[in-house]
Design a protein around this nucleic acid. Structure first.
Lengths: 137, 137
DNA sequence: TCTTGACTTAGAGCGCGCTCGAACCCGTAG
DNA sequence: CTACGGGTTCGAGCGCGCTCTAAGTCAAGA
């Protein structure tokens, strides 16, 4: 598979793939007789996992650490596991924080809903106006 | 309240507070006779809300839009609400995505746990060795 | 044969969100 | 009076993660 195909299938650009190889996030790819990169489909699995790490906010320097352990092969599993477990905790905390923010957003949005409701009440004819914040049942 | 106090209470640096004012994220602050910024405690509520928007990944240009509507005052509630509702949807999607990533992380970590278990089994004396991936019950 | 288009490398540039430095101004404690 | 610990403005610089340009190579199709 050539870099353009891998780009299409991975969702990365060819530029980004070369950049990732340059910094060590992707292993140095085999080249064909034209010195073009020639990929095996298995690289997609790794790219997809990198995408998960990225989505969850792992900085590239940490991905590099993980990638280096992976390249090092057997004997690094315990450290890889520890790295992922630490990351998982951070992601869990992140989810909790986002959920807390969602509650705040809900409250804020509800406030605007009520503002609009008051406006609607004000616009209503005098004999139909109801005091208070909520629409009558 | 002076900028240093606000920095302590808000968790931002004085540099960042000035930067936020400069770009319009914070309203132009009153100055005292020494031309120093003089803040009212109420600004903390706004800064805290900005922090929520930031935590949830809203880019500054969108916060600026919201801040501008806020400054514009009454009559902009519907648009502010719409902006927050769109953002809420993005945050919900983000939480879903993170949870999906957490499942992948769990699987990956479980894989390493099993690797370590095999290693432990290999290290055990011959008569105690058990075939298979899982620790015996 | 010639053109097209995808590939190569090295290195510069960019958008974001700060972060910091320089030079200066003030008010207060010693 | 002086030193110090704030504050001020303006603008440059930085770390991140790409993103793009330039100049060249190569293979395949008209």
């Amino acid at each position: 598979m050539k870099i353009g195909d891998l780009a299409k299938r991975s969702g990365l650009t060819a530029h980004t793939i070369r950049y990732y190889e340059r910094i060590g996030l992707l292993p140095y790819a085999d080249r064909n007789q034209s010195r073009h990169r020639d990929y095996d489909a298995s690289i997609l699995t790794w790219i997809e996992f990198l995408g998960r790490l990225k989505t969850t906010g792992m900085p590239i320097r940490d991905m590099l650490r993980y990638a280096a352990l992976r390249e090092a092969g057997a004997g690094t599993e315990a450290e890889r596991r520890a790295l992922l477990e630490r990351h998982r905790e951070r992601v869990r905390a992140q989810v909790d924080e986002l959920n807390a923010c969602l509650l705040v957003l809900d409250t804020k949005i509800d406030g605007y809903v009520e503002t609009e409701q008051r406006k609607t009440d004000d616009d209503a004819p005098e004999q139909n106006r109801i005091r208070g914040r909520r629409k009558p049942a």
